[in-house]
Simulated scan of single mutants.
Amino acid sequence: MQQQNESNRGFSPFQFQPIEQTLQTFQWFSMMRANQPVYHDEQSHLWHVFRYEDVTKVVTDYSHFSSESIPGFSENSFLNGTVVAKDPPDHRKLRNLVNQAFTPRAVNHLSGRVTEIAQELIDGIKPAGTMDVISDIAFPFPAKVIAELLGVPDKDWDIFRRWASGGEGVGSEVSTEDNTAQGQQSMEENMYDFFSRLLAERRESPREDLISSLSVAEIDGERLSERELVSFCILLLAAGQETTKNLIANAMYLFTEYPEVAERLRQEPALMPAAIEEILRFLPPVWFTIRRATEDVQIGGQTIPANSIVMAWNSSANRDAAQFPDPDTFNIQRDPNRHLTFGHGIHFCIGAPLARLEGKVILPMLLEQLKDIKRVPDVPINVRAGIVYVIQSLPVTFSH
Score class of each variant (00 low, 15 high):
1 M>L: 13
2 Q>V: 11
2 Q>T: 14
15 Q>N: 12
17 Q>M: 12
18 P>Q: 11
19 I>S: 07
19 I>M: 11
21 Q>T: 13
23 L>D: 11
29 F>G: 02
38 V>K: 03
38 V>R: 02
39 Y>I: 06
40 H>Q: 10
42 E>I: 05
44 S>N: 04
45 H>N: 13
53 E>A: 15
55 V>Y: 03
56 T>P: 01
70 I>A: 13
73 F>L: 12
74 S>E: 07
79 L>I: 07
79 L>G: 00
81 G>P: 01
88 P>Y: 08
97 L>Y: 04
104 P>M: 12
110 L>I: 07
125 I>F: 00
126 K>L: 13
127 P>W: 01
141 F>E: 09
146 I>L: 11
146 I>N: 07
149 L>F: 11
160 F>V: 00
160 F>I: 05
162 R>K: 13
167 G>Q: 09
170 V>M: 14
173 E>N: 10
175 S>K: 03
176 T>C: 10
177 E>V: 14
181 A>L: 08
183 G>T: 10
183 G>R: 11
186 S>C: 12
186 S>N: 10
186 S>W: 10
187 M>D: 05
189 E>K: 08
190 N>A: 14
190 N>V: 00
193 D>E: 08
198 L>T: 09
199 L>E: 04
204 E>M: 15
211 I>K: 07
213 S>E: 13
215 S>F: 11
223 R>D: 06
226 E>L: 15
232 F>I: 11
232 F>Y: 12
235 L>P: 01
237 L>G: 08
238 A>R: 06
243 T>H: 05
244 T>S: 15
247 L>Q: 09
248 I>V: 12
256 T>A: 03
261 V>F: 05
263 E>K: 00
268 E>N: 13
270 A>S: 14
272 M>T: 10
280 L>M: 01
280 L>S: 03
282 F>A: 03
283 L>M: 14
284 P>Y: 01
284 P>K: 01
286 V>F: 07
287 W>N: 14
297 V>Y: 05
304 I>D: 04
309 I>L: 12
317 A>D: 03
319 R>H: 15
319 R>K: 13
329 T>P: 02
330 F>S: 04
332 I>Q: 01
337 N>G: 00
342 F>S: 08
344 H>M: 06
345 G>I: 08
347 H>I: 02
349 C>D: 01
354 L>N: 03
359 G>M: 06
365 M>F: 02
367 L>D: 05
369 Q>G: 04
369 Q>P: 01
377 P>L: 00
382 N>A: 06
388 V>T: 15
399 S>L: 13
399 S>Q: 15
